[in-house]
Structure formats: C-alpha cells, structure tokens
Simulated assay, not measured.
Amino acid sequence: MKSETMAVLLLVLLLCAESSIAQDVFSPSIDIIAEIEKLKHMDERIQKLEEALTNVLSENEALKTLVQESQNKLETVQKENEAKKVAFSAKLLKSGTGKTGPFNGLKILQYKKVFSNVGSAYDSNTGIFTAPIKGAYYFRFYAHSHSGTTMAVSLLKNGVTKCSVFSWKPVSNGNGSNGIVLTLEIGDQISIQLWMKTWVYDDPAGYTSFSGFLIFPL
C-alpha cells in the first residue's frame, strides 16, 4: 500500500514538474510579441531613413544640375560681355617720319602703329576694321599735309564713302579731321581711303590717325 502511495506521489510530483517546464516554455519572461512590434517599428524607421536619403540624393543631383546650368549661363554672359568690348586706335606710320602718296589710284591706308585694339577687330595689315557684333559705332580720323600739297581722305563703309576731309595746297600745313556714328552689321568693314594724286604726312607725333569704338550693341 505504501508503495502504491509513493508511486502516486512521484507521479504527482512529475506532473507538477512537467507543468512548470511547459509554463516556462510557453510563457517565457521575454515578451516576444512586444519585441516583434519593436522590430516592425525599427524596420519602418529604416525605411523612412532610406526614403529620406533617396530624397537627399535626388535633391543633390538636382542641385548639381542647377549649378552646372548657372555656370554655363555665366560663361555665356561673360563671352557676350567680352564681345561687346570693341575699341581701337592707330596712327599711320609704325615708326619714323614721312609721307604716304601720291598714287595714281585710290589707296586704302594701313595704320601700322596700333595703340589699342580691344576685341581685335582692326587689322593693321589691311587697314580694315571689321565689325564683330551688330551695333552703333563711332569712328574718327585725322590727316595732315605740308604746304603746297593736296591732302584728301575718306572714310568708307563696305567700299562706300561716308565722310571725308580735304585740304588743297595749304599755305602752311593742312590738317583735317572728321567723325561719324554708323550702324554696323556683323562683318561690315570700315576703312580710310587716300584719294588719287594726294598724300598725307605722319611722324612720331601721330598727325594722321584712325580710331573707333562700339557705343552700344543692337
């Protein structure tokens, strides 16, 4: 009887132990559901961070594009401003003293001593100014001759006379100057022409000269 009682007691104790183990397994101290919720929230935060990073990268690319476009526009404006800077001044003889002419025909004067040539529109090899941009330009020229000689020069636009100076056998020295404002298209040419059988004089003082500049573009 005692043995049967002991067996029952051992069986009860074993059942209690198994129940306790089962409780520990199925009801652990860590809240798994809460941890899963935390992981879900963390995943949502990571996703939001990734979206924010993607937006920042997109904005960065857009900013790079904007900066590049601004640089391109700035370079274009700088080039346009450089093209608007046109001015030159030159005298007839590069050095020394002497006269030019007379000739049996018309002669384009080549002003060899260049004082300034901003924009490189004047060519001292030909004596011709070529307009680099459309605009209003101002030109002025001076000519000098000695007594008893005739001096006559004209300013030409594309080969057509626009204004002139003339001195016929002065008693002492003959001087003349003239100026004009012209509207030029790109490629229009301005030159100074010596009349046939006349001559001009120049020396280091620069008595015979040719100058011009862009007033404003059009």
Rank of each mutant, 00 (worst) to 15 (best):
N72L: 06
S211I: 11
L9T: 03
Q68F: 07
Q71Y: 10
M1Q: 08
Y138W: 10
S3P: 02
P217W: 09
L92W: 02
V200R: 02
Y111N: 12
M42S: 03
A83N: 15
E50M: 08
E75M: 09
N72H: 10
S120T: 06
T54N: 15
R140T: 12
E59F: 07
A121Q: 05
N178Q: 00
G101Y: 01
I30F: 05
E51P: 00
S27M: 03
L214H: 13
K38E: 03
G176R: 02
S191C: 07
A52N: 08
Y142T: 12
F210I: 06
P204A: 04
S164N: 04
K48V: 08
R140K: 08
A34C: 03
T183W: 09
S124G: 00
F166C: 05
L156M: 07
S191G: 11
L218V: 14
P102A: 04
I133W: 03
V67T: 10
K157R: 06
D123K: 07
L57R: 15
A83V: 03
L53V: 04
I128D: 01
E80K: 04
S70P: 00
I133G: 00
G176L: 00
I133V: 15
T161F: 02
A87I: 06
L74I: 07
F88H: 11
G206R: 13
F166I: 10
E51T: 12
T65S: 14
V56K: 12
H146N: 12
L156I: 04
A205G: 05
Q23T: 09
K40F: 14
K169C: 08
S177I: 09
E185L: 13
A52G: 08
I128Y: 08
I190F: 10
Y122Q: 02
H146E: 15
R45I: 13
S154R: 03
E75F: 02
S116K: 13
E18N: 03
I30R: 14
K197N: 13
A205P: 04
M6N: 10
A62Q: 15
Q47P: 05
V160R: 00
N178K: 09
